[in-house]
Simulated scan of single mutants.
Amino acid sequence: MIYVCLDDTDNLESRGTGKLSRTIANELSKNYPVYGVTRHQLYKHPEIPYTSHNTCSVIHIETDDDIDVKYNDELFEAVKFEMMADFIDGSDPGLAVAHEDQIKPALTAFGNDAKYKILNQQLARGLAKNLGIRLEGLGGTEDGVIGAMAGIGLAHTKNDGRFLLVKNNKLKGSNTVETVLNSGVDAVYTIDGRLVTKGVIVNDSKLTKPCPVNGEVILFVVEENGLLKAVNRG
């Protein structure tokens, strides 16, 4: 897997990083095997500038085992082009691309720290250099490099955040469990651990948002008054 992380691409008047990442993922899917897009929540603190939620987005690209770093560079340039074409004044975007073989425990720890601590560009850039990960700030203060590195570390755990897109399938509103499973979701569970195999899932959110859990795509639901309601976590 190759992970492409975007952070801090928006301002209060623009579309968010999540929407931009889905648009870029759709464009990449014309030439690359896009697995999905995940959203990861980072630390919300008065000393950290962010637009509304301080989240980053990671595009997951499936690869063969013998892929090399040149593939990373291709992806990096393709995504950089799309991000620069959509550059928003007042944003501080960062972009990072890493093959799973480049992701070491230090990067996972950095991602976890970014959920609870104030970090800095120097640490993010030093980590990228030492791990051989392509990282760039694309404008403004370039603080987006922090979230760009953190998102890769978090996505690689396969246990953080939620999916904004799975295999280019985007579900809205209410759907049968069968439809949800056919969209790329591996299983549907109630939050108390019961496997759900049939029924209609009611969703009050704009999109159905399953979660990565131990490498699987899982949608959680709660049962209320005989109805299955989607739980949008992360």
Score class of each variant (00 low, 15 high):
N120S: 12
D101P: 01
D143A: 10
D89N: 09
V185K: 03
E178Y: 08
G226V: 05
L228H: 03
S205A: 15
N120C: 13
E13I: 08
A78P: 05
T38H: 04
E82H: 14
D204C: 11
D10E: 07
I218H: 12
E13H: 13
T157W: 01
K167V: 09
E74P: 00
I103V: 10
N203H: 06
G18F: 01
T63Q: 05
G144H: 02
V145W: 00
D101Y: 12
L42W: 00
H99V: 05
R15I: 13
E47R: 12
L20P: 03
E216F: 11
F110K: 04
V34D: 06
E100H: 15
E74G: 04
L154Y: 06
T38R: 04
R134S: 13
A150N: 00
N120D: 15
N168G: 09
A106M: 11
Y3K: 04
E74H: 08
H156G: 07
I118H: 07
H40G: 08
L75V: 09
V4C: 01
E27K: 14
A150Q: 00
V200G: 04
R233F: 12
D89L: 06
D86Q: 11
L20R: 06
D160M: 14
L195K: 13
L164Q: 13
R15L: 11
E74I: 06
G132V: 01
N175V: 03
K80D: 00
N182E: 12
S183R: 01
V79Y: 00
L75W: 07
I2Q: 09
H156I: 11
E223N: 06
D113V: 07
G94T: 06
T55F: 11
G36R: 00
E82Y: 13
L135W: 03
T108K: 15
D7P: 03
